[in-house]
Computed example of a mutant assay.
Amino acid sequence: MGKIICAGLGPGDPDLMSLRAARAVQGAAYIAYFRKAGRPGQARRIVQGLLAPGCVEYAMEYPVTTELPADSPEYIAALHEFYEDWAARLEVLAQDRDIVVLCEGDPFFYGSFMHLHVRLQGKVEIEVIPGITGMSGCWTATGTPITWGNDILTILPGTLPQAELARRMGESDAFVVMKTGRNLPKIRAALAQAGRLEQAVLVAHGTSAQQRIARVAEMKEEDCPYFAIVLAHGGRNRA
């Protein structure tokens, strides 16, 4: 019997991978990773140069990413079928081999592996290796602590309605907005509504060679990639 090992790869810089995850990746005979069709995939880029010769790769290509609204029945049905299919395939493969599934950041923090995990639990042995989250890498890149003292930190998905984003931004000492990308105009409007636009920063491709940091107020929508996080630091009431 084999098992499925999900390796959290951290925020992007291979040097920020844990020793445990690096050992799993380097010793893997079989790996699987998510990617958009026609792209190498962020997880695969992180492990470039670390894989053993002859390692067999399974690219799990999303059937849809931004082509349909994320809340549409078509999008939900396509992703459901995709996860069902790959869970079944990995279950069969893991009967006689170990498979390392690559996951950016931490697998249990907005990671796609969660959709496989819930389908595979109780069917195969699963090991999950935690990783440094993308948001942690991004706020460290800004050179400023994200929270101070009794600050409350809120994590927000950028897919929320503008009014809900603005409400929670206004209530929080510090916050992180995930899933930015095409949601940037809505996020910027919510920041302005909450009175937090001037202090908000955007970190794209945090910790990687392509890292960029800019004030959200100055960021153009077309310059905002998928791997981008909006931050507002706490500490407004610190001593």
Rank of each mutant, 00 (worst) to 15 (best):
M1R: 02
I4C: 04
I5W: 07
I5A: 10
A7M: 09
L9R: 06
G10L: 09
G10T: 08
D13I: 11
D15I: 01
D15L: 12
L16W: 13
S18H: 07
L19D: 03
R20S: 05
R23Y: 05
A28G: 05
F34P: 00
K36E: 14
K36F: 09
G41T: 04
Q42T: 09
R44Y: 15
V47N: 05
Q48D: 14
P53C: 09
G54W: 10
A59S: 05
A59L: 04
E61H: 10
P69F: 01
P69R: 01
D71P: 01
S72M: 10
S72I: 05
P73A: 05
P73Y: 00
A77T: 14
L79S: 05
A87V: 04
R89Y: 02
L93V: 03
A94L: 02
A94M: 06
Q95T: 01
R97K: 12
D98Q: 06
L102D: 08
E104M: 15
F108T: 15
F113N: 07
H115R: 10
E127D: 04
V128M: 02
I132G: 10
I132R: 13
T133Q: 10
M135K: 04
G137T: 07
A141R: 12
T142M: 11
P145C: 08
I146K: 10
I146E: 13
L153N: 12
L153G: 06
Q162E: 15
A163P: 12
E164F: 03
V177A: 03
K179D: 09
I187L: 08
A189W: 09
L191N: 08
A194F: 14
A200E: 11
V201G: 08
Q211H: 08
A214N: 03
A214L: 12
E218K: 04
K220N: 00
E222F: 01
V230S: 04
H233L: 13
R238P: 00
